[in-house]
Every structure is written in C-alpha cells, then in structure tokens.
C-alpha cells in the first residue's frame, strides 16, 4: 500500500494503536475517526489521562488538512509538555501522505 501510518496510545504499560494502509491517503475525517476509535477502545482510566493528548492529536490532524496534508515521515507525540511515565498519544505517518482535505 502506498499510504501507511498509525495513531498510537502508549505509556504506563499501555500499547494500543489504530493504523491505516491504503492506496489513497486518509482524509481528515478518517484520521479523526481513527483517533475516536482508539480513544474508545482503551480503558476509561487510560483515556481520561490522555484526554488532552487526544485533543491535541485531533488539532494536529485538522491543522494538517488545512495545510494540504502531512507527508511521511512524521512522528508527533502528544500532549505538549513532559510526558509523565510516557503517557502519550503519537501520530505516525510512515509512508505516503495523510489527512488530506
């Protein structure tokens, strides 16, 4: 597949992700849906401590779309600030492009 990437929640013993692998780059809505799906699938406590991280990840996706998308390789970690115990959410554009309008 030409376009690959993942959104990952990690730290504090958690390792969960939602990935894409497709012939067309994921759109903004598809990116936001993946974030929602990941947030829903992890335990409530894990989601609550990453609330800010998920919000900032959404903001990045929206910002990327407003600027034509994001080209590989991109690796961004949220939330901003020190990630205590590595509790975070990452967006990784591994190959191709993502979050196109």
């Amino acid at each position: 597949m030409e376009h690959r990437g993942r959104i990952q929640a990690q730290g504090g013993g958690l390792e969960a992700s939602e990935s894409w692998s497709s012939s067309t780059p994921p759109t903004k809505q598809e990116g936001l849906d993946l974030i929602d799906k990941l947030e829903r699938k992890i335990p409530l406590a894990e989601a609550m401590v990453r609330k800010k991280a998920f919000e900032q990840a959404r903001t990045f996706v929206e910002r990327a779309t407003a600027n034509g998308g994001a080209d590989a390789q991109v690796s961004i970690s949220f939330p901003k600030g020190i990630k205590v115990k590595g509790i975070q959410v990452d967006i990784e554009v591994i190959k191709g492009k993502a979050f196109v309008p």
Partner: peptide, 21 residues
C-alpha cells in the same frame, strides 16, 4: 535529517514537536 517538520504546502509546524531529529 529525519522527520518532516513541514506540512505538504511547506508551512512549518513551528511547535518544537520535534525541534530536531
């Protein structure tokens, strides 16, 4: 240099995430 710090249209992230790779 490794990771991209610009969007597709060339606009820089300008947020230090990352500042260097």
């Amino acid at each position: 240099e490794w990771l991209k710090t610009r969007f597709s249209n060339g606009v820089k992230f300008f947020d230090g995430n990352p500042i260097f790779s």
